[in-house]
Design a binder for these strands. Structure first.
Lengths: 201, 201
DNA sequence: CGCAAAGATGCGGGGCGCGCATGTTTCTTG
DNA sequence: CAAGAAACATGCGCGCCCCGCATCTTTGCG
């Protein structure tokens, strides 16, 4: 990767992070595109060269992690399918992967802000869309394993969307509970239920 | 329901239908809010009294059907859970439920337009959000049956999101295939797989 | 009938997303 | 290494969208 692409990736990540931070701190509609651009030191016009909307910028990190699941899945072609899926999800959504990058001062206040943020209607839609985009990749990765055909078989798509459903549900439950239930346990449980069948509670 | 509420529901339905029809015919960004309002005979400002965005208007019918699944589920408390779920989904997303209301002249051209419409990024997010809203209702309906607790149990939420995942996947596959596979068969298959477990393709 | 509540409309403003033209930095090639 | 090509950053301006507010009209009720 040349200098060009690296700088671009850095700017994109910086914009996304600034968008998230400001939104968590002030709330979505108290953050203007201009604010995000200023925080990174770029022109407002440039912001829209990287992201086609505020929501897309905020959700970028989530999209990245979802795509990472597909990537991790391809790297684990030796294990049985659902072991690989569980492991892939945990590496990207596990507790350590979350706060690795940017530490925050007041953890409680941060979580409260995150709760407000993910409740925002516009962002919910965008988050789900990010999951749907990654779903296509995951379905492709599953099809590679099982030898299925993406155009004719339902199974790969069904697995992908069920996995994302489990992830979304686990995260939602994690954010809903207070004190929070460990997210890795929720993810493992949810995926196990999906794999084994939901007919038996 | 008084005259007032009926008229309001009619206007809302008319706005939503006009939004869908125009979008299918011309494409999303060739339809202005003014066009939709004009088609119904209402002021543009009034449009935004009913829907807070163009996307929300277009997706309204989808939201309605998704909520209907929860409703149908509550009415079938006698059957086993997954029989009731399958039946509830089929009554709302089955082939007859689709074209019942507004007949269309050129079916092929219509389907082509629908394919373009559902590919629209902004609408995909809004559609998924509608499913997520209904998910809460479905989870509540499931919890009523199984005696689960929405705040502490993962199971009702997991069932709800897995059901919506199955529905979305089935519809997506229905729109992807040409000639189209019957949607009721896809729905039944997808739900059966979810209920029985995905570990065994 | 007459009044209170709810809805419809007009107006205006703050943003937002993007096309276009222009200047600037990075990559490639002779 | 110089110079052109390609990619990127920025400024400007437009059209549209969504909403708050004030006003007018319709509906429901006693």
């Amino acid at each position: 990767m040349g200098l060009r692409e690296r700088k671009k990736a850095e700017t994109r990540a910086a914009l996304s992070w600034a968008a998230v931070r400001l939104t968590v701190e002030r709330g979505l509609d108290n953050v203007k595109v201009e604010d995000i651009a200023d925080a990174v030191g770029v022109s407002p016009r440039t912001f829209n060269n990287y992201f086609s909307s505020k929501a897309e910028a905020i959700v970028f990190r989530h999209l990245d992690r979802c795509m990472g699941v597909a990537e991790a899945l391809r790297e684990r072609s030796a294990e049985p399918l659902w072991d690989a899926i569980t492991h892939a999800v945990l590496t990207r959504f596990g507790p350590d992967a979350q706060s690795a990058a940017h530490p925050v001062a007041d953890a409680a206040q941060w979580t409260a802000g995150v709760r407000v943020m993910v409740a925002e209607p516009a962002l919910r839609g965008e988050m789900l869309r990010a999951g749907a985009i990654a779903e296509a990749e995951i379905a492709a990765a599953v099809a590679e394993r099982t030898g299925g055909d993406l155009d004719h078989d339902l199974y790969p798509h069904l697995v992908a969307s069920a996995v994302m459903a489990a992830v979304n549900t686990a995260i939602a439950h994690h954010l809903r509970t207070d004190p929070p239930v460990p997210v890795d346990r929720l993810l493992t449980d949810a995926l196990a239920h999906i794999a084994a069948g939901l007919s038996t509670p």
